[in-house]
Structure formats: C-alpha cells, structure tokens
Design a protein around this nucleic acid. Structure first.
Length: 836
DNA sequence: AGGAGGATTTTTTTT
DNA sequence: AAATCCTCCT
C-alpha cells in the first residue's frame, strides 16, 4: 500500500475555505524524504510506457487521447494518487471533473484503493454540475440568490415556462414550453445570457418573443430563489467573470485540474474550465504553470445533441500552448475480432484525430463478432434471452453480460421476456427513481418545508391529495403573490385572513398553511427522516395512496418507504434534497447476479464479457432523427455511438437486427443498419436464421393465425383498411412521400446504394420516412384542415370507425357534429369520418 | 371542482 | 399501444 503521507495535514473541511495552504515545495526536504520512502511506488506497477508518462507528467497542460479500453480511468486515478503521494498537492487542491455521477463515484473508490482514506479529503472531485453547485452556494449572493436556492427539475422548468408563455398571450400549443426549455438549455450550454443570444434564435420562438421569454424566465428563477441545470454552469462563469477576486481565490486553490471525457464538454463547460485554468500570473508575479490534464477520446463523443463540442478536444493544443499530448492506443479490453470490427467501423468517419488501437491478444479460439437476424422485436428478445440462458448454463455470470439499446423503448421487450424467464436483470439509467410521480410529490412537500420560497413545489402539491383547492384557488393565490411581490406560501397565509376565498377552500388552505408552519418549526428539532414521515402522514399523502385502488398504488407506497430509507444516509433534509436534484438516480445494489440493460449512452465507460446490441436497423440505429436533424454530423455521431457499443465487449459481441419493428404502435418493415455493412467481413460471422432461432414468430404470414396480436402482415382487416383510407390519412401519406423523396434527393452518394438494399417498397417508404413524415404530416394536415373549407356539408351521411354511421348535424371548421344512428350526437373531427 | 372519455401525441440519447 | 391532454358533463 502506498500510503498517503501521514505527516501531511488532512484537509477535508470543505467549508473552511481558506486561501490555499502552500504545497510542499518540490525538491524540498520533505518531498525528497517522501520520494525516498516511495522509491518504487507500487501504484506505477503494470502501467505501460504511455500510461506512465500520462501519470508522471504532472506539470503543464497535458492531453491524453485515450482510445476505448486503453486504461483511461486507471491513468486518471493513478495520476491523482501520484500527485498526492509525492506531496505535490493536498487533496483539496485538486479539481477533478467527470461527466456522470457514476464516473465520479468510481473514481473516488479507485483513488481510495490507491491512496487510502485521503480520498475523503477530495472535496472537488465530482461532476461539472455538482462542483458548480458547490461554488454557487458559496457565492450565491453575487448573482442575486440566497445560498439556500433550490434546483428545478425538468418538470418544474416546463410548468414555469408554460405559465410565462401564457402570460405573454401566446398559444402554448403552437409554442410548446418543452421546446422553449430546449432552446434555453441550448443557449445555456453555449454560455449565452438573454442579452447575448443571436437575433435569429430570439425571433424563432413565440412570434419573436424568444429573448423576452428567456429573460422573463431568468427573472422568475431569481424571485423563486431557484436555478435550473444550465445555471449551475452559467452562474459560476458569471461570478468568475464579474468578480476577479473570487476567481483568484480558486486559482490559488486548485493546483491541479483533471477532466475526464473531455470530448463531451460543451461550450459553457469549456469556458468554465478555461477561466479556472488559464491564469497568467502567480501571486508573486511569476508565471504559473497551468496544470491541467484532459482525458478524452474524440471517437467516443456522443453528446453533440446536448451541446458538446468535439472541437474542444481538437483545439486543446491551441488553447494550451506547449501541451504534452499522449496517446493511449494499446487496448487491454477486447479480442482482436472485436477491436478489428470497431476500428473498421469508426474508420468511416471523417474528421478524427486518428488513433489506431491495437491489442496483443491473439487467440484462435476467440469468437468473431456475430450478426443475427430476427423477424421482429419479440423474436429478438426471445432469442437473446435464450442465448443468455445458454451462457448462464455454461457458468457465465449474468453480471458479465449486457444488452445495450439505442432508445429506451427497446428495453421493454427484454424486460418482458426476462420476467417470463425469471432471469435477473438490472436496468441502468432507466426510468429513474426520483422521477416517479409519488417521489416527486413527496419531494415537493419537503421542498416547501425546507425552502419556503419554492412556489413550484407548493403548486405541485397544493391539491395533492385533493383538498378542493383547484384552479380558481391557485389563480387567486398567484394573483395575490404577484400583486404583493411575495411567495405563494406567503400569499396563501395572507389570503386565509381575508374574505376573498369561499369558506370551504379557505379552511382547506388554512389547514395546509398551518401544517407547513408546524413542519417548518420542526425542521431543526426533529430527525429528518422522522420529519419526512410525519409530513407524508399528516398531509394525507400516504392515505391518498392507501385508498387508491389502482394496481400501482402498493408499489408507490413501497417507493415512499424506500425514499425515507434512502434519506437516512444524509445528514439533513436539505443535504438530501441537494443530492436528489443533482443525482436523479437512486443507487442500485449490484450484489446479486443480473444482466444489465441500458442505453448505449449510459454504457460509456463500462465493459462486459458479452455484449448484445439489438436493433441495428435503419431509422432506429442510426436514428432517423439524428439523420434528419444532424445530417452528416448526426450520422457520424451515431457511428461513434455504435463504436462505443462495440468496444464495450471484451470477449463476445452479438449484433442483432429485425425485419419488422413496431413504431408508435404500427408495424413497419425495416432495413438492416448501414453500420452492419461497415463491419469488416474478416472479423464477422453471420449467424444464419434457422438453427436455434429459426421457427419463431413468423406468425404474420398469410393464412396462419397470429398468436401475438394484430399484425399488419396479416391481410389487412376491415378495421385496418378503414382507418388508413380516411382522407386525412391519405393526404398525410402523400405529404409524407413528398417529404421522403425530398430527403433522398438532397442526400449524397452514400445512401444511394442503400436504396437497392430494401427490396420491399414498404421497407423503403414506411421504415425510413415514417419518423420524419409524421412530424411533417402533423403540420400539413393540420394546416390543410384549418384553411380548406370542409369536405362535408350538413346532412351528409358519414361513417366513423367507433360510432358507425350517422348524419352531419352541423359543421364548425374541421369539427363536425354528427347524429349517429346508434351512438347519438357526438362532436368529431373531420379527419375521423368518411363519406358513406 | 372533478371525472369520464375522446382526441392527440409520442420516442433518442442526459447532467 | 400507451400516456397525456382536452373538453364536456355532472
């Protein structure tokens, strides 16, 4: 064990923000003594030459280009251990940023192993966001917040924006809050304040009110004493820029900066880093080295859609002149076949820094990458389930296997299958614990108690459980709060003393307000788990679910219990709330043996002996939307995602595609992914259908009954043809086809050869265009309905799929009132009926 | 105010 | 197909 030097003072107190203690001087007696004691530091054992260089080049800017499976995390953790062990810095003087909480956790554990307990003293190891909060809490008043500010989740954010959009007199259908949230997020990722956003962006939303809404949103956040996720990056940047003295504090504090997954940093994160790293002068006027070390792999940049700029990594040497660039190209993870497949695939991308991964493994027994075909997603899940069971019986641990999907909806088929098989599985990053309705409600109660100004939280639970405080009551509270410039809770308090409300809601409101006051009074006197239980009981929230007869109710009560249990490991309600807002994931127990199921995105950084990659079909992977919105860049990002997937596998890799997949409830035939063609034949083996997986599920052939429910491969049923011969749908079809051919026309050579691929016209039309088509359909159909005079006139006889035949009684625009023979009078949209 | 049932939309990936 | 949203009815 290479111990952390005992004689170094421990520096763990995060709140003790003193100017940095001087680091032990290099070459000083103490340092030399330590070096002697650690003559051959064991942590360097087993590193190859490049890795060792990356660990030992502690001074100056360093860029480590680390390909998949080349020991990147090991280098990072060892480097930190090295800095600590050689006495170059105290734990609190190292800033280490990761992207995910998972990665931060793992690094903590691994440094702990290398260095011993000193890792507890690394207060600045975390994600960009968690470190951002820490900085922001310290200096909140500099940006007009108080240090108890709350962090909004996406739900709150959207509700807030919706209010603002409506307040501007805009139609929130035409201008969805979700979209506005996306825009704001994008701007914040670029570090742009409302005044700085491009004019074009500002005009694009809400009849040119984009900028105004953004500003209104920020103002509102300030009065709520709240931030959103983007602010956790933006606001520290603003503080650094506007308060050089604060920035200087951090300059002298952080002696070493390390950044993981540098290829995924967005512009705001980049600015944040540069502000911290690009100091010019030390306090005594001498030039200080910028000890920043960024580790990344341009081939694994998969967060472009979130604003990540691969450019940051390509530009590193310009930003930090004199940087040492170290390449890690020796792969320790995968077989030569898997590595060969991955390299060949990623070589189809342009604009790479270019690395050549190699391995010294060569075992003739290594399996090639296997490509399998299935009829549909059910067969795919069934066959993979079988393969998993077969491996299991050959004593492979489920823990060593993973299924990596492109989109989370794909997970369901596997979950269903594994439940039937009784196979343990673990969903990683799936539907998150803290995003469940009951958990969010409970948290909203806690937020109001802990942060009385949290209007959004109060709004969320004001009528949950039902207390007769509906829209009218809420509107009154809002108006009062706005008129007096107070919080919603204060407005409620004021209102119960007046006659403005009807007696019934007023009593309910009084009851609630008094409860909150009582709970708030208990916050410092009662253990927080106890208080939490008390709140959920007294508010009637628990009873609400106890009385709920839906099948989910018991599960929800379970979740609430688990929530309370989770809270025990935090010291206060506030600490817990902070954790939750940053880490939306509850920790999972990886004790028992289970196969992992997750998206490709959340698989980055992990590895498994056996990996299954289902759903390699055009439109799904590469995803149609990535293609439509990102063009060539989008395609390349998808390819990098495929590369990430392939390189997760150590020994066995199975890739699957199906001929049919259900998209939005409709079966579509699909074309195998172009990425399959980009795999090198020498490393791939195509597993013939038939054999073990042959006879399944080809139930759609005409003449055979389909045991799996309706399928469009059966001859179209009357109901089916009815639905799809409505004029609205036909118009949609026509538009879709036009849109599709436009797409094809504008595409470049690469796709042309694909056309011949899918011989079935349904594969081409339905599979490809459908996603895009739908979006376009929506608009075109809506427009034509709105502007054209109705195709019908009063008295027409029409047919409706659900209600049968009837006569049109009256027409308003595209809405028809129809007297149905059987169903009586109904109002129905024009597109849903057809003339008889 | 609240519920029922019909209409509409949804799914890419995440801190 | 399922979840959410909306409208109308009680």
């Amino acid at each position: 064990m290479t111990g952390y030097p005992d004689d170094l003072p421990f520096f763990g107190d995060e709140d003790n923000f003193v100017p940095a203690a001087p680091a032990p001087r290099q070459g000083g007696i103490a340092a030399r003594a330590m070096a002697a004691r650690n003559a051959a530091p064991r942590y360097l054992d087993g590193l190859n030459q490049e890795q060792r260089q990356a660990v030992e080049t502690t001074e100056g800017p360093v860029l480590v280009l680390a390909g998949a499976g080349t020991g990147k995390t090991r280098v990072l953790t060892t480097r930190i251990a090295h800095i600590l062990a050689t006495g170059r810095a105290y734990p609190s003087q190292i800033l280490a940023v990761t992207f995910t909480n998972k990665a931060a956790r793992e690094m903590k554990v691994r440094i702990g192993v290398l260095v011993g307990e000193a890792v507890e003293g690394m207060p600045w190891l975390g994600t960009f966001h968690s470190i951002g909060v820490k900085i922001l809490r310290r200096h909140a008043e500099l940006v007009g917040l108080s240090s108890t500010f709350s962090i909004l989740d996406t739900d709150d954010q959207i509700r807030l924006l919706k209010q603002l959009i409506q307040a501007e007199g805009l139609d929130d259908k035409r201008w969805p809050a979700r979209q506005m949230a996306g825009l704001i997020d994008g701007w914040k990722n670029k570090g742009l304040a409302p005044a700085e956003i491009p004019e074009g962006d500002a005009r694009a939303f809400g009849n040119g009110k984009g900028r105004l809404l953004y500003q209104a949103y920020q103002d509102r956040l300030k009065t709520l004493n709240a931030t959103d996720f983007g602010d956790l990056l933006m606001l520290p940047i603003r503080i650094f820029r506007e308060h050089p003295d604060v920035l200087r504090e951090y300059h002298s504090k952080f002696r070493y900066i390390l950044v993981d997954e540098y290829q995924d940093t967005n512009t705001a994160q980049y600015m944040w880093l540069r502000l911290l790293a690009q100091r010019r002068q030390a306090d005594d006027g001498s030039r200080m080295p910028v000890n920043i070390c960024c580790v990344g792999d341009d081939d694994q940049s998969i967060y472009g859609w979130r604003g990540a700029e691969v450019d940051n990594i390509l530009r590193f040497e310009k930003d930090f002149p004199g940087a040492t660039v170290i390449r890690l190209e020796r792969n320790y993870r995968s077989t030569a076949h898997i590595l060969g497949a991955a390299s060949h695939l990623i070589a189809h991308n342009e604009g790479r820094l270019g690395k050549t991964l190699f391995t010294e493994r060569s075992d003739p027994d290594d399996a090639r990458v296997k490509v399998h075909a299935a009829w549909d997603s059910d067969e795919e899940a069934r066959a993979i389930g079988e393969e998993v069971e077969a491996l299991q019986s050959k004593s492979h641990a489920l823990n060593d296997m993973a299924i990596l999907v492109r989109a989370s909806f794909q997970m369901r088929a596997f979950e269903d299958r594994f439940v039937t098989l009784g196979l343990n599985y673990r969903v990683i990053g799936g539907p998150r614990f803290y995003e469940r309705q009951e958990i969010r409600d409970a948290l909203a109660y806690f937020r109001v108690v802990a942060q009385g100004a949290d209007d959004l939280a109060l709004e969320r639970i004001i009528n949950v459980p039902k207390r007769g405080l509906g829209e009218a009551a809420l509107r009154l509270m809002h108006d009062t709060a706005r008129a007096r410039g107070t919080t919603l809770l204060q407005a409620a308090r004021d209102l119960i003393g007046t006659e403005e409300m009807k007696p019934k809601p007023r009593a309910a409101l009084r009851n609630l307000v008094e409860s909150f006051e009582r709970w708030q009074g208990l916050i410092d006197r009662t253990p927080h788990t106890e208080l939490a239980e008390l709140i959920l009981e007294e508010s009637g929230y628990v009873d609400m679910w106890k009385n709920d007869r839906t099948p989910e109710a018991p599960g929800r009560l379970e979740n609430l219990k688990e929530l309370i249990t989770n809270m025990e490991s935090y010291e206060s309600l506030r600490a817990f709330l902070e954790h939750v807002s940053l880490v939306m994931d509850a920790e999972q127990n990886d004790e028992q043996d289970a196969i992992s199921l997750m998206t490709l995105h959340s698989a980055k950084g992990l590895e498994f002996d056996t990996v299954f990659l289902p759903g390699w079909e055009e439109g799904l992977f590469p995803h149609q939307r990535a293609l439509d919105e990102g063009g060539r860049t989008g395609l390349e990002e998808e390819r990098r995602l495929a590369y990430v997937g392939v390189t997760r596998a150590k020994k066995n890799l199975h890739i699957w595609f199906t001929s049919n997949r259900r998209i939005h409830g409709l079966w579509q035939s699909t074309i195998p992914s172009r990425f399959l063609d980009e795999l090198p034949e020498s490393h791939v083996e195509v597993v013939e259908a038939g054999g073990a997986y042959g006879g399944y599920g080809h139930s759609g052939y005409p003449g055979r009954p389909n045991p799996y429910g309706a399928s469009r491969f059966d001859d179209a049923s009357p109901a089916f043809s009815n639905t799809y011969s409505t004029p609205g749908w036909q118009r949609a079809q026509k538009n879709r086809n036009e849109a599709t051919s436009r797409n094809w026309g504008s595409r470049s050579g690469h796709q042309v050869e694909r056309i011949g691929y899918g011989e079935t016209d349904s594969g081409y039309g339905a599979g490809r265009g459908s996603v895009k088509g739908k979006t376009i359909d929506g608009e075109l159909v809506a427009k034509s309905v709105a502007t054209e005079p109705s195709r019908f006139k009063v008295g027409d006889r029409v047919f409706h799929l659900k209600f049968g035949n009837g006569n049109i009684a009256s027409i308003e625009g595209n809405k028809l009132t129809i007297d149905f023979d059987k169903a009586g009078q109904k109002r129905v949209l024009d597109g849903f009926v057809e003339p008889v």
